[in-house]
């Protein structure tokens, strides 16, 4: 177990080193470049040369990469040039990280809370109306582009009906105390219930938009996994032993059916990070995804580096945790 963990961590480091090199080369081969992005097309050559040397872009690539690695080791990724000019890139990341985490948790909660029970019920009553409705919804959920769904939700529930706020993380007229940067948590810690509730309302629509694909995937995998498990011999044995239905369901069916669900949930984290770019743009939600889309258009290299490295690290780490969590759920893996 420990050896496995260490090996996976080493693999992670290797992936990140290769990734940082690729990322670095990729950033340098972008058309335009940060100087044009900052000064505009009609800047004088003098100004350009000055800024180029300030940013260190005139040095050989290997030197730049070496310096880059050195800075990364110190947690210094340079200054943002477009998203929040003047701020450190890592600061931009730190500012926006809690927003995206809140959104991702909201989306995953939506997906799990609806996906697992519905998938289970659909499998128990295979061919019933719930099963059919669930399967159709999950197929549609994968076919609808995330950003269009976000638009649709915003158009219906925010613009037409006015039930929920159309954009942002919190209404500007709420004077909330900031503690952790997680707005919902802050409100709970400081007992500013209205601030918390307002933040939750801002999260509902983006969470549904972002959580639809994970919901569809989790629903389907739960359904097919329960269908597989309930035909297993050990379920018949359990029934023959005279165990109550409740025990069979919770201890035998659900527990065995959850293993593939865990894997798939882990894989969805990557989809969440990518989907956040689209969802946050539609809802003007100030998270990492929105920062990423701004950084692309404004060619904010330092911020891009941090964001892509961070999302890759998160993705790989989560997948590692998923692999490790097998051992907790399934004792058979622990022994082998």
């Amino acid at each position: 177990m420990l050896r496995y963990t260490v090996r996976r961590l080493l693999q992670l480091v290797l992936v990140l080193v290769v990734l940082s090199l690729l990322l670095f080369l990729w950033l340098r081969s972008l058309p335009g470049g940060p100087v044009t992005a900052m000064l505009g097309d009609r800047s004088t050559p003098d100004k350009r040369a000055e800024l180029t040397s300030v940013l260190g872009l005139d040095q050989p690539l290997m030197v730049q990469y070496g310096k880059f690695l050195g800075r990364v080791a110190h947690g210094n990724f340079g200054q943002s040039t477009g998203v929040a000019p003047g701020d450190s890139a890592i600061g931009v990341f730190a500012d926006r990280f809690p927003a995206t985490v809140e959104l991702a948790i909201g989306a995953l909660l939506f997906a799990l809370v609806f996906g697992i029970p519905l998938g289970y019920l659909a499998a128990r009553r295979r061919g019933g109306w719930l099963d059919n409705a669930g399967v159709v919804t999950s197929l549609l959920g994968v076919a609808v582009p995330v950003f269009f769904l976000a638009f649709l939700l915003k158009y219906i529930f925010a613009v037409k009906l006015g039930w929920l706020p159309p954009s942002g993380r919190q209404s500007p007229d709420i004077d909330a105390t900031r503690v952790t940067g997680f707005f919902v948590l802050d409100g709970l810690l400081t007992r500013e219930w209205d601030a918390s509730w307002d933040a939750v309302k801002h999260l509902i629509l983006p969470s549904i938009a972002l959580g639809t694909i994970p919901f569809a995937v989790i629903f389907r995998i739960t359904r097919s996994s329960v269908l597989d498990v309930q035909n297993e011999d050990f379920i018949r044995t359990a029934e023959a032993k005279g165990l109550t239905n409740r025990t069979i369901r919770s201890r035998h069916i659900l527990r065995n059916a959850l293993l593939p669900v865990v894997t798939v949930t882990g894989l969805q984290v990557g989809a969440l990070l990518a989907g956040a770019v689209l969802t946050e743009k539609v809802f003007a939600f100030p998270g990492l995804g929105e920062a990423l889309s701004i950084a692309f258009t404004k060619k904010d290299y330092p911020v891009l580096q941090v964001l892509i490295l961070a999302s890759a690290t998160t993705f790989v780490l989560v997948n590692m945790l998923v692999d490790l969590s097998y051992a907790v759920i399934d004792p058979r893996i622990r022994t082998s």
Partner: peptide
Amino acid sequence: VDVMLSIPSLL
């Protein structure tokens, strides 16, 4: 393949 998969697909 690992490196390519470590970046979420849309990114």
